[in-house]
Amino acid sequence: MLNALEVVTTVVFGVMVGVEFSVAFVMNPILNTLPEDSGQLGHAHGGRMLGAVMPVWYIGSLALVAVWAVAGWHSDGAGLVVTAGALLILTVAMSLLLLVPINNRNKTWTPENRPADWKDQMNRWDRWHYARVALLIAAFALLAAALA
Rank of each mutant, 00 (worst) to 15 (best):
G39N: 02
A131G: 14
T110Q: 03
P29T: 04
Q40T: 11
L99P: 05
H43K: 09
N106L: 13
M27K: 08
D120T: 12
A146H: 12
R48T: 15
K107V: 07
Q40E: 14
R127E: 12
E20I: 05
A144C: 12
W118N: 04
A116M: 09
G14R: 04
L31S: 10
P111L: 12
A63T: 06
A71I: 04
W128V: 05
L31Y: 13
L143D: 03
L136S: 11
V82G: 01
L64G: 00
A84R: 03
L87F: 15
L64Y: 00
M16K: 09
A131W: 14
L96Y: 15
I102S: 04
I59N: 00
W128I: 03
L135R: 00
A144Y: 12
V82F: 07
H74F: 13
V12S: 03
I137T: 09
K107M: 11
A63M: 03
D117V: 01
I137S: 03
L147F: 15
M49K: 10
L143G: 04
W128C: 06
L96R: 15
A148V: 15
P115E: 06
M94P: 12
W109R: 00
G79H: 05
L142S: 02
A24F: 01
W125G: 06
W73A: 02
M122S: 08
V12W: 08
T33G: 13
L90N: 00
W109M: 01
A52W: 09
S95W: 13
D37P: 02
L50M: 15
L5P: 12
N3P: 02
A138K: 09
P29N: 08
A66S: 10
T110S: 10
N3W: 07
L98H: 09
L62F: 12
Q121I: 04
G85W: 02
L98R: 05
D117H: 02
M1V: 14
I89L: 15
R48C: 11
L135Y: 08
L97H: 14
A71R: 04
I137H: 04
L87N: 06
V11W: 14
A146W: 11
V56E: 13
M94C: 14
V7F: 10
A52I: 06
F13M: 11
V70E: 08
T33N: 15
G46L: 12
A116V: 12
K119M: 07
P55N: 03
P115W: 13
R114Q: 05
D37V: 04
T108I: 07
V67R: 03
K119T: 07
P35W: 07
V81Q: 03
A146D: 13
E112V: 05
E20L: 08
A24T: 01
F25V: 03
V17R: 00
A141P: 07
H129Q: 07
V70T: 09
M16V: 12
M27E: 13
L34Q: 02
V7Q: 04
L98S: 11
P35C: 06
S75R: 15
V100L: 09
M49N: 08
T110L: 07
G42K: 07
E6K: 14
F25W: 10
W125I: 09
N106S: 13
A78C: 14
N28K: 00
T10I: 08
A131F: 15
L142A: 02
N104W: 06
R132I: 14
P35T: 04
T110K: 08
